[in-house]
């Protein structure tokens, strides 16, 4: 129970810190909006693109690519921005598992919020017919959860290995590719309005990956933490 209490306290602290500065939130939101806008302008240079047959496919994939880069940037901050003294302070007062749990939950919340906003902005610039909008929405939420669980642990590893963003991308992309593959498949099915029960298999795999990732980060983080 002590673990749960510590996790909640740390989570509160993260949220309050974020609420005060709103740095991560605003920064990533701006990042998403400007990326979408750049894409919008670039695609508009090619008239007739929106009517072409490949548009729905590009629409879906482009959204996930934007989300991928946005979440790498958002989650990388969670450990990279912490300075050494503060980390040492956490170490003295809290259990390492509470730290990784609170960071993961915080990132999950942040990314869920951001991905919903991103979807709205994206739909605004790139209108598209999504047959099963509710299901697509759920898949986007699931995607943001999966991204944040994977990236939180990777950012912890990268922060120990000399705080650089390139390393973060190198380490996380191979790990996150299975997640992306499933997400693109499921969200395409949602877009085409294919019966929901047919994608349950894929969603199950996605959830299983999440469970594996969370379990292994809980086991491994204490080792990473110790210096």
């Amino acid at each position: 129970m002590k673990l749960a209490g510590q996790t909640i306290e740390l989570l509160k602290k993260e949220i309050i810190l974020e609420w005060r500065s709103k740095y991560a939130f605003n920064g990533i939101l701006l990042y998403i909006v400007s990326t979408v806008f750049v894409c919008y302008i670039s695609f508009n240079l090619n008239p007739g693109f929106k009517q072409s047959a490949g548009y729905p496919i590009v629409w879906n994939i482009l959204f996930w690519i934007i989300m991928l880069f946005a979440s790498v940037n958002a989650v990388a901050k969670s450990f990279l921005q912490e300075n050494k003294a503060r980390l040492l302070y956490y170490y003295t007062i809290a259990h390492p598992q509470a730290i990784i749990l609170s960071k993961t939950i915080y990132n999950t919340l942040l990314m869920s919020l951001l991905s919903v906003l991103a979807l709205v902005v994206y739909l605004l610039f790139f209108p598209n017919k999504v047959d099963d909008l509710l299901y697509y929405f759920i898949v986007v939420l699931l995607g943001s959860v999966s991204f944040s669980t994977v990236f939180t642990m990777i950012s912890a590893i990268a922060s120990k290995a000399g705080n650089n963003g390139t390393l973060m991308a190198i380490l996380s992309f191979p790990v996150v590719i299975p997640v992306i593959l499933i997400l693109v498949k499921v969200s395409k099915a949602a877009m085409d309005g294919i019966d929901r029960s047919l994608s349950l298999n894929n969603i199950g795999t996605l959830l299983a990956i999440n469970v594996i990732v969370i379990a292994s980060s809980l086991i491994l983080f204490p080792f990473l933490w110790r210096d």
């Binding site: 590893i157 290995a161 380490l171 191979p174 790990v175």
Partner: peptide
């Protein structure tokens, strides 16, 4: 540090590679 961090990454990445 190198040994520790790379061991952690190795273990972390392995189940995902199996999937």
């Amino acid at each position: 540090t190198r040994a520790k961090i790379s061991a952690i990454y190795n273990i972390f990445a392995f189940p995902i590679m199996i999937v």
